[in-house]
Design a protein around this nucleic acid. Structure first.
Lengths: 220, 220
DNA sequence: CGGACTCCGTACACTTGTGTATTGAGTTGC
DNA sequence: GCAACTCAATACACAAGTGTACGGAGTCCG
């Protein structure tokens, strides 16, 4: 340890940062480091997160980093937890703000299928997190939490849509699995995007067929 | 260059290896290095392929490596090409050896959905290749070739199964995308495997419903 | 104005990894 | 048997990355 670095370092209040007389050079918040890490992860996965590289990109030296974070491992851990919190908040917002002009199922697809396809960076980060989860226990737990919440979410929608109770789980898993797979192939070949949207329609039909017999109206 | 290392190094015929009087220590073939690389990739992705580590695992030093390969890049390139050739051969074998006791569609699922789920290493390698393809042009081309061939294969099966011609491509893509997605989540959570098999059944029903061109198929 | 605090720069020690040059022990062919 | 060949060991130079120790410029607060 340098002098006596606090275990929870400089927690600068972001709000008071502007009220404070602006320093010559803008100081860095931990979030700035996490954002930089996110960029590096989107580009080359978790192995591409190097303190030296991030510092260079942020225009500072590693001295700053080791003030905000104990070490490289803490950066990764905090990044993963922030990622999980944001994904869960995403779901919570969706559940709390129903859109009366759109069917629920469509919104699910928009969230997990179409929307991320437009935000390439976010999609790449998610895939990188999943990749990393295969060799990191902490990441595996994080991914499990997010997967669980998402599947639960889709399941609830399907149940509300009148799908046969015994099969909502399998259908939800199908939707989720097709979604993830779509992301994987889309990151490599964006030209398939229109086809992915037609696939969405196929799944809608499959679900419609699984409801008590009829119903394009309520679902679509 | 050392002395005058040949551009195409020692190509030991694997067949004559046993006829040859066995050396004190078994010599390494390039394939041995490629296999070791595959193990490293399955464990930690392409960034985990390090000449030093492979050598340690093979019980030799890097001197051997630089005899068989020009450099690290060549190892990666040859690994990718071998991977592609094997995947294409896999498909060719399937097409050339029809099994009269099993439906074609089932065989497709067995190949792309159930079989790899049992071979964890192969599955992880495939996912790592796809991850690597997002930042490596060569890998991207390789993956494109394999994807193209597989989707073509599934499309052919669906057409033979009597699926509406106009939609075979979309259905094939759905099958493929669901497959890839299934692999991704299964690598993280193997306990979902039975659910994946039920998903297979759902897709079969979807395809059956698509057979013979029904009227309501015009919804898309 | 002066101490304490916040944040970053600098310098050092250490580790891991690549690539090259060279040597050297087996093996094969003639 | 002996040269040529095959394959691996060793030693070296170099680069990149981590973590730590310490110094130092701003900034706030009394």
């Amino acid at each position: 340890m340098p002098r006596t670095r606090p275990k929870t370092p400089g927690r600068r209040k972001a709000a008071a940062a502007t009220a404070r007389r602006a320093p010559e050079r803008e100081l860095l918040s931990p979030d700035a480091w996490l954002d930089a890490a996110g960029l590096a992860i989107a580009e080359g996965g978790f192995d591409n997160v190097r303190v030296l590289t991030l510092a260079k990109r942020l225009g500072v030296t590693r001295g700053s980093f080791y003030w905000h974070f104990a070490d490289h491992a803490e950066l990764i851990a905090r990044f993963l937890e922030r990622w999980r919190d944001r994904r869960l908040a995403e779901l919570a917002y969706l559940a709390a703000n129903p859109d009366p002009n759109e069917s629920e199922l469509r919104r699910v697809f928009r969230l997990v299928l179409r929307e991320p396809a437009r935000n390439a960076r976010q999609m790449r980060v998610e895939l990188a997190v999943r990749e990393f989860a295969r060799r990191d226990a902490h990441a595996a737990r994080i991914v499990a939490e997010v997967d669980r919440a998402r599947i639960e979410h889709v399941t609830g929608f399907l149940r509300d849509a009148g799908v046969d109770e015994a099969q909502t789980r399998d259908l939800a898993l199908l939707v989720y699995v097709a979604t993830i797979g779509g992301r994987v192939v889309l990151t490599a070949f964006p030209e398939h995007e229109p086809a992915i949207e037609r696939i969405e329609q196929l799944i809608v039909e499959l679900i419609a067929g699984r409801r008590g017999g009829r119903a394009d109206s309520a679902v679509a």
